[in-house]
Structures are given as structure tokens and as C-alpha cells.
């Protein structure tokens, strides 16, 4: 891997046409090994590309155990699958995508990027799971649990059983006792020193619907979703239709 890293770092400063192919496989390999991949797309080896490559390279050098990076010239036909997957021919370049091991895109930065932004794109496993759910157009119901044995709040269970939300929810469960999720708790503004679970609900693409205590009922969660306007239950669909009809 170190060899690969050095090779990529070297070619990032070489003319674009000389950048090696096979990056699709590299992204897949990185994912399999649980690493984040920064995929940098570029058109030409101009100043902006070189600046961005240096920033990514520097960041990867710092957190090399968890990340890797690849560069992709959008004109390279061999990279077509990756270009197509990120629609890179239609985005402002250079741009770098943060891709979690589960395939979730955890950040996209165009033309310039800094260390902090790249750092923010590295998520905990549960956080990336939640983002994957949101990117699949589902409502993320995140249960922040004190420990692995704590039961899922009844309100969340009730919401899952609500036929109006069938197939529309993505449940994520993170434990305070799991040190790898500490960053997730911090970013969700939840104190890990929990007595009881805390429920957070998000709607795609990234709207915070609310943070609830463990005692929240299924009805309250449903109401919060209805109120937020991000709900897609039959009742909300009816209301929206009526509202658009009035307009």
C-alpha cells in the first residue's frame, strides 16, 4: 500500500496524461480494507490541480492508516466507470470526493480543499452508515445508546411498524461505549455520558428533523416528521397535493 501511495503521490505532479489507470479497482480495494478514499478528478495538470493534489497528499500522509487517494483524469477512457459514477465530466474540476468504505460520499470539494474539510469527510462507521441511508433517499433514525445492551426506544420501534413509513426509514444504532463512535456523538451534539438512549431523526439530503429523548412515542416522531415537511407518508402526500392544488 505504501508503494501505491508513493506511486500516486509521484504521478500527481506529473503531466495528467501519464496518470495510471485502474483506479476503480483501487477504490474497491481500499473499501474492502476499511479505508476512506479521496478520489480526485481533474482535467489538466494545472495549478489548481496541483494545489489540490498537494493538499490531499498532505492530509493522506497524516492519516495514512485510514485513508488513501486516487487521481482520475476525466478524459481517460479507462476511467470511464469512475467518471460516470461521480458524473465527473459535469462537475467543476478539479474536485475531490471523500468516499467511505461503505460507498457513501462523505464530502465533495471543488477547485480547492483544506485539511479541515478533508478531515471532516472521515466519518465513524455508524455516521457513514447514516449518510449512506440518507443518500439512499431514506429517513435516518439514529439511536444513540448508552451501551450495546440498551433496548431500542419503543417510539422508534413504533415508527418502524407504522405502515406509512414502511421502507422509508434507515435505522442506525451507535453506542456511547464504543470509542470508535465518540466522534459521531460529538458531531451529533450528544453527550456520550448517557443514562438513556437519545433519538435523532434526519431527512435526506441532510436535514435535522429533531433530537428526542428515549421516552418519545412513535406518534410524536411521526408528527415531527409531518411537521418538518420531509415526511412522505400518505397523509403528507395528500396535504402537499392539496397545497399545490390551492396554489
Amino acid at each position: 500500500m505504501r508503494y501505491l501511495f508513493c506511486l500516486i503521490a509521484a504521478v500527481s505532479f506529473a503531466p495528467a496524461s501519464s496518470i495510471i489507470a485502474g483506479t476503480t479497482e483501487q477504490v474497491e480495494t481500499a473499501a474492502e480494507s476499511g479505508k476512506y478514499t479521496y478520489v480526485m478528478f481533474y482535467r489538466s495538470n494545472d495549478d489548481a490541480t496541483q494545489r489540490m493534489a498537494r493538499a490531499v497528499q498532505s492530509h493522506v500522509a497524516e492519516v495514512g492508516d485510514r485513508t488513501t487517494w486516487v487521481t482520475v483524469n476525466v478524459h481517460d477512457r479507462r476511467e470511464a466507470p469512475l467518471v460516470k459514477r461521480f458524473d465527473a465530466s459535469r462537475i467543476p474540476l478539479p474536485a475531490v470526493f471523500g468516499v467511505a468504505p461503505n460507498g457513501a460520499v462523505t464530502g465533495v470539494f471543488r477547485e480547492k480543499v483544506n485539511e479541515e474539510q478533508l478531515h471532516m469527510a472521515i466519518l465513524t462507521p455508524m455516521y457513514s452508515d447514516m449518510v449512506k441511508g440518507l443518500q439512499s433517499q431514506r429517513i435516518a433514525v439514529v439511536c444513540m445508546m448508552p451501551d450495546a445492551d440498551a433496548p431500542i426506544p419503543t417510539g422508534v420501534k413504533a415508527l418502524q411498524q407504522n405502515p406509512a413509513f414502511e421502507g422509508k426509514l434507515h435505522q442506525v444504532r451507535a453506542c456511547a461505549s464504543d470509542s470508535s463512535e465518540a466522534e459521531f456523538f460529538r458531531r451529533m451534539h450528544v453527550d456520550p455520558d448517557l443514562d438513556a438512549p437519545v433519538v435523532l431523526v434526519f431527512a435526506p439530503p441532510g436535514t435535522h428533523v429533531g433530537t428526542f429523548e428515549a421516552t418519545v412515542s412513535g406518534q410524536e416522531l411521526a408528527q415531527a416528521l409531518h411537521r418538518s415537511g420531509k415526511c412522505n407518508c400518505s397523509k403528507c402526500q395528500r396535504n402537499r397535493r392539496a397545497a399545490s392544488g390551492k396554489r
Binding site: 458524473d87 470526493f97 451534539h189
Partner: peptide
Amino acid sequence: EFYKKSAWQSVDLLTADLG
């Protein structure tokens, strides 16, 4: 198509929404 692209920014948006 837009949803797909704006979802790439889910993390940014979440961060923004959480203040």
C-alpha cells in the same frame, strides 16, 4: 440527478443543520 449530487454533501448539510 440533483438529489444524487446534493446528497454528496449530506455531511456538510448535517453539520450545518446541527449548527
